[in-house]
């Protein structure tokens, strides 16, 4: 089978490796860009372009494992220019839950702040400290004053992460809710890349997570 390179956000590495393992997608290679890029989304298209160009020699088939991720459509345009595919949807919260389902409750959850497994694990590095809340907790309400609840979109069943996520909600002064999503549209998108001959790949009857 033709080798395919996945150029992914570092925040998705664990989930992608797990999907590879579960589905036996050994022909998918993975390289990641730093998850910190999410703090500077304007840099994502350029970094993706550099990565695609760097790996063009080794892989004729490349797939970008990012959604729009705050690039305002620029990443989509860049990927089209480069002739590579990417994930549909505005961000990982949406595709983990399933873009359609997420969009359906976007209005009623307007005041919801989301975390994924990755963000629960890395809450201090990717939320608390970059927002300066460690040194200046008084800024919390400037950032989160308009939010009402934190929803932990869980990719896995892990009571420890559940407990940590609840602590995160308390630190942000938000009501807590957990919703299990599994890997959602990430699994579907990677299935299409790994097994294009079976369409979405869902008909393969393998262990989709």
């Amino acid at each position: 089978m033709e080798r395919v390179l996945l150029i992914a956000c570092g925040a998705l590495a664990k989930e992608i490796l797990e999907l590879k393992r579960l589905n036996g997608w050994n022909h998918l290679d993975l390289t990641c860009l730093p998850a910190e890029l999410h703090l500077y989304p304007e840099k994502i298209p350029e970094r993706v372009e550099l990565a695609v160009k760097e790996h063009r020699q080794s892989h004729s088939s490349i797939f970008v494992v990012y959604a729009d991720c705050g690039t305002g459509g620029l990443l989509r345009r860049k990927c089209e220019e480069l002739g590579v595919g990417m994930i549909d949807g505005p961000h990982c919260y949406s595709f983990f839950e399933g873009n359609q389902k997420f969009a359906e409750h976007a209005v009623e959850e307007m005041t919801t702040f989301y975390l994924t497994d990755f963000l629960v694990r890395q809450f201090d590095s990717f939320v608390w400290r970059p927002l300066g809340l460690g040194k200046h907790p008084e800024l919390r309400d400037m950032y989160f004053g308009n939010y009402e609840r934190l929803v932990y979109l869980a990719q896995t069943e892990d009571p420890q992460l559940d407990r940590l996520a609840e602590e995160c909600a308390a630190r942000l002064g938000l009501e807590y809710k957990r919703r299990y999503t599994g890997y959602g549209d990430l699994a579907v998108a990677l299935g299409s890349v790994a097994e294009p001959q079976t369409g979405s790949g869902l008909s393969s009857g393998r262990g989709w997570a």
Partner: peptide, 11 residues
Amino acid sequence: LFVPEVLLAAN
């Protein structure tokens, strides 16, 4: 400077 510093200055 980053957002937190700007917010402190703004305050």
